[in-house]
Structures are given as structure tokens and as C-alpha cells.
Amino acid sequence: MRGNPLWPYLATIVKIVDETPDVKTFRVVLDDPGARENFRHRPGQVALLSVFGQGEATISISSSPARRDYLEFSVRRVGRLTGVLHQFEEGYKIGVRGPYGNGFPLEELRGRDLLFVGGGIGLAPLRSLINYVLDRRDDFGSVEIIYGARSVADLCFKEELFKVWPKAPGVRVYTTIDRPEYGWDGHVGLVPAYLAELAPAGAGKCALICGPPIMIRLALQELARLGFSPERIVTTLELKMKCGIGKCGRCNIGSTMVCTEGPVFSLARLQALPPEY
């Protein structure tokens, strides 16, 4: 219903990829051609997905906006709604409201060398930006991706991680898993520790980081040590949201509504907010 920000666009699931035992990527196409045309998102923005009968959940859009014919959402099964969504099949309908949020600060990232630090499902919002950067390769500097998960099975976007991104120009991918595993001869260790080992120089670079809160906390300390300035460390917060449009009063940190003024925040901005997230 046009003009109603609480009314979802109906969308059809066209492809489901099992990324890990508890993460699936849903590729959806909006049913209404007008909606398809008008839905333009920036990397880092989110949408509220409706599983009718269960409610809505806020999920990062994990596809790049340069890929126009579909939207992808990588969803971890954590509760009731995501549990039901994980049982859906191709052809099923869901609702999509969005895009909401501020997205990554593309203007500040242009021309810079980028360091992506991700853990687990945290790679999902970063993936949207990584693919965007690769679709406009000349607009950005070098790309380093440090990514880890609990185990090989828990690594998301394996296709891109191992086959697509390492082959792109000026991109280096460093993957790690928490504990040794038979058949894995890559790096073993937690992401913050791997980051410390690799020690990328921070000067002039932007770091984009997303993952479990503990990983972010430790990685932030490491990034500060490596010389990344707080304005150039960017993360995306995860908070419970119900409307996504700044009305339901739930996602505030102090007087900042995360759904409209976030969820992407620089460390500098986060440090100015009360620690309620």
C-alpha cells in the first residue's frame, strides 16, 4: 500500500542457499514491478522481513545494490520467526519493508584502502559492501578481508570467500576458524588474534567490522593499537527493532534512534553515546 510505511512489499523467495547449519541466504524478488524499480538500497541498510503469522525481523541486506534483480538476506536461525522462515521453500511469500537505516558511509570510504573484519553471520552486512566495492573496483583502494567463524561449517558465503573474492583485483582474504579441524590447513585462531598477527597498518585505512559483541570489543582494541582512527572504524549494531522507522521507541541509544540514524556507526560516534547497546 503506497504511502504506508508499515505495509510490507510482498516478495517471493526464488533461491535458498544453506550457508551454514544455522544460516540461510534467501534470495527474494519483490512481486510488484514498481516496488522492484524503486527499491534502491545502500550497502549496510536493513529491511524488516515479514514472516506473516510470526511477525517481522530486522535483517541486513546482504546483496550488493549494484545487483538489481534481487535482494538477498542472510538469516541466522535464532528464534521463533527465523525458525519458521528457515522452513520456507522457494516460491513462498514473505514481506519486505525498507530499505531502512543509514548504510555505510560510502563517500568517506571512496578512494581509501579498506579492511573488513567479520565474525560469523557478521559478514552478511559487510558482504553487501564488499560486492559493491568490487562492482565499482576503481572507486576504492585495496581490500583486505579478515573473517572467521567457529568452524569450517560455520563460515558464511563460502563460494565468495574461497572462489570469488580472492580472485578479484587488489583483494586479499584471510580466513580463520576457532579450533583445528581435520581437512583445514588454513589459519586457526580467533579473529581478534588473527588481526593482531596480520597487523595491517592503520594509517589512512578504513576498518569495517561486524560480528559477535565480544569479537567486536576485542577487535576494536586491536584496531586502535594498529593506528586506525576512531572516525575510520565503522561497525553496524544489532538491536531489537519493531518498526524500523523511528516510531516504536525501542531501538534508541540515548536520543539516537538506531533504525533511522544507524545501524552503521563509526567508533567515534559510538563513544559519544551511552553504553546501552
Partner: peptide, 29 residues
Amino acid sequence: CFNVIDRTAPDGSGGRYRCWDSCLFERFT
């Protein structure tokens, strides 16, 4: 502050409701 809640009938049809919620409730955030 409000919550958005779906209710389903046995046949799968249903409705989405906007209901008052309180930031003082434990499960609000």
C-alpha cells in the same frame, strides 16, 4: 512505544496489530 504482533487463525489467515508496549517491561529490548 508500541509492539507489532501477528495473530493467526487456524486456517493460516491472520492480522498484524500494533499494540502499546512499555519500555519498562523486561523484554522490551
